[in-house]
Design a protein around this nucleic acid. Sequence first.
RNA 1: GGUCCCGUAGCUCAGUUGGAUAGAGCAACAGCCUUCUAAGCUGUGGGUCACACGUUCGAAUCGUGUCGGGAUCACCA
Length: 594
Amino acid sequence: MSIQKIIQQATIDCLESLYGKSFTAKDFQINKTKPEFTGDYTIVLFSLLKPLSKSPDALGKELGEALLKSQPEFVSSYNLIKGFLNLVVSDNYWNSILLSKNNDHCFGTGAKKERRVMIEYSSPNTNKPLHLGHLRNNFLGWSIAEIFKANGYDIVKSCIVNDRGIHICKSMIAWKLFANGATPQSTGTKGDHFVGDYYVKFNDAYKAEVERLVHEGCSKEVAEKEAPIMKATQQMLLNWEAGDPETLALWKTMNEWVYEGFNVTYKRIGSDFDKTYYESNTYLLGKEIVHKGLDKQIFFRKEDGSVWIDLTEDGLDEKIVQRKDGTSVYITQDIGLALQKYEEYQMDQSIYVIGDEQNYHMNVLQLICKKLNLPNANGIYHLSYGMVELPTGKMKSREGTVVDADDLLDEMERVAQQKTEELGKVNDFQPEELKELYKTLSSGALKFYLLRVDPKKKMIFNPEESIDFHGYTGPFIQYTYARIQSILRKQSGILTGPVLSSATPLLKLEKELIMALEHYPVVVEQACQELDPSHLANYIYHIAKTYNSFYAEHSVMNAETEEKKQLRLLMCRFTANVIASGMKLMGIKVPERM
RNA sequence: GGUCCCGUAGCUCAGUUGGAUAGAGCAACAGCCUUCUAAGCUGUGGGUCACACGUUCGAAUCGUGUCGGGAUCACCA
């Protein structure tokens, strides 16, 4: 239990025994004491004054005394300033935390929950390579999964691949028309980029055809419909749906190319999945659900045969769930897939990591599932994240302003190498070690940069800022870790720990660091509850910052006394463990040297 | 137009179940390497928390309104 919760409980107990009234944790606040005042934690008394009809001074004094008396091992003194009861936590407590937790690799992990959570993320299209937006999605999904694991949940990571539809056919048509049988192997191109290039070629050709038709006198609307290449694409989709062997064979081949490319990128960014769903297998799902919904009169049929649901009472619109030709639409497939996932895994919660442009869609999805009374309905949670924009505005594939994931990773690695070489601290590294280090630093910088922002908010990706290795960045934290390891390597033999004596109290910076470290489990829990890794990013940065201040002021190996040396060595190890653990929850590695 | 989200330092962001004098990083300026990694540390300057009104002991945080920005309201996925 964290010291904050200990104080909270002790306060509730004291209020009960002093005044015979029972309060809950929500009835008052406990904050960290502001640096300008004496104390570690502060109880804000204002909200308690009325129910107890007490003055701030009287209540503060009585509560302070009671806490001092009932919690001698935790509270060493108190002071009262205008309704703020500041408590000083005893060194004894901080020392005991340091001794018991500094090398405890379970520190920060929660008890097993017997609850299963599915996290769906990444969800790529097979007609173009992964880009910056996918990276935010992947990093978020991965990190949320790690955070839930640390909190004791059973996790299933899933991915739905959008591998069919008109957009895939566009790449296929363009390949047939322009490739002359070229393959990723024959051109030495990464498979997903190879296919993506044909998607671009389609759009170029289509645009040219439309322009030609308009020039010949067609209206723009007609031209867009009648362009031969578009008609061929639509025919191809029909062929695909009819199961035409030649079309299916090409589709399969091109998708394989894409998957090979994706796998390289996934490996590079450290993403993986326990279960991959393919839309080509799920796009027909949902028919049974439509039947059921019609029977229960949750859905209704229009004259043309299409099936709808009326959500106007819930403040939304009418929404189609089946076309007049009997095929499922997007939302129906999603309902079907949601149910299929549930039947397969019986998870208590199903988290979808999807951009905020789909907020409406996900609302509708959950609402329909609830109306149908499906067993998975209440577990659906949309982890909605904001778009990644560039300083120049939005990324637009048509204008070529999309930041490609592979290109970005290459560039980051190049910068990592350049900066490392400039500093020249690891000249004795073997080539493979260097390569590994550049990877660790560059992906650490990128992941931290994308995860440090509140997921809900759209963010601006500034290329120059993202490859900065100073200040509030991943490499700054990695550097702090490497620095600590350097000290720990100098210490041969086992850490004995300090012989505790009240004669040498903790110094300000020592206490600050231990206090911050003690808080780690609270943050891990909070990041889980709010599905927000940015809390973790902020916290770990704060730890690194606090450690560096301590490090600059106090020597470890040349400490004033042997006792202080032992104490600080334990602090170093504790800090390193918390940094490594927290970074791992964000999917970021830490180097032993850099 | 309806619904939802956002507006905090020059820039990028924290801080929002109401609490003490609103914090970081970047950028700018000034210091600190004969002692554990200077990818670091210390300090200075920089704010009408979009605006107005309200709720109360107390508002960046809650409510109402205004202004500004974005998303969405597809028989595309």
